[in-house]
Simulated assay, not measured.
Amino acid sequence: MAGSIEKRGKNSWRLVVSNGLDHSGKRIKKTKTVKGKTKREAEKELAKFIAEIESGHYLDPSKLTFSLYAERWMRDYGEKELSPTTLKRYRDFLETRIIPAMGHLKLENIKPLHLLEFYKSLGENGVRADGKPGGLSTQTITHHHRLISAMLQDAVEWQLITLNPTSRVKPQKSEEAKWNTMMKLRLLNFSK
């Protein structure tokens, strides 16, 4: 499999790999932009990129949905790095709430607004484990946020996306949490 390197800017290189021909005879090219100070570093990244494509492990970021990424993340990271209990809990979060709400979104198109809407829906009518009506607790919503944040941070490190949208979002506090915060502030002011 042939590949080439193009200088893009200071410490930036575009890797181009020819991957055969499509049904109309047009050459199929896979591209990836990587960071590296020297051409030698870019050549090492090109070798890895070619190996990824040849082994069938390359994921085209422009076509990658959150659902497909979650499967890959669980397989390549979760099953190797997480305890069985944590892995089970994360699978439950993904299967019951996160994937049904966000699985269809392309990974590179997830914006802070999507996350805010998701957290709001969890607070209003999230599927509770105890079967009671109403939303999830602030703590449970925060656990969902942390999982999504960790997954998207790995996507940044794996160069699938350039920015983690969770870094711009904080899950909203429930009305109960807002009330408790307000009461604590009043007690502090009262005790002075």
Rank of each mutant, 00 (worst) to 15 (best):
G3L: 01
R8V: 12
G9E: 10
K10V: 07
K10N: 10
W13N: 04
R14H: 00
V16T: 15
S18V: 15
G20A: 11
L21R: 13
D22G: 04
H23Q: 12
S24M: 13
G25A: 11
R27E: 12
T31F: 08
T33G: 08
V34L: 05
K37C: 03
T38K: 02
K39A: 04
K39D: 02
R40Y: 10
K44Y: 10
E45S: 14
K48C: 05
K48G: 06
F49G: 01
E52C: 02
E52R: 07
H57N: 11
Y58D: 09
D60W: 08
P61V: 02
S62Q: 07
S67N: 11
L68F: 05
R75S: 14
Y77A: 00
E79T: 08
E81P: 02
P84A: 06
T85K: 14
R89S: 13
R91P: 02
F93M: 13
L94K: 06
L94Q: 04
L94F: 07
E95R: 15
T96A: 10
I99G: 09
P100L: 06
A101W: 04
K106A: 05
E108Y: 05
L115F: 02
S121P: 05
L122Y: 02
G123R: 06
E124K: 08
G126L: 00
V127E: 15
A129I: 09
D130N: 15
D130A: 04
G131E: 11
P133T: 10
G135H: 00
T142S: 10
H145I: 04
I148S: 03
A150G: 05
M151W: 02
W158R: 02
W158D: 04
L160W: 00
L160H: 01
T162P: 01
L163Y: 09
V169P: 03
K170S: 15
K173V: 05
K173T: 06
E176K: 14
T181L: 13
T181H: 11
R186F: 14
L187P: 02
L187Y: 10
N189T: 14
F190I: 13
S191I: 10
K192T: 15
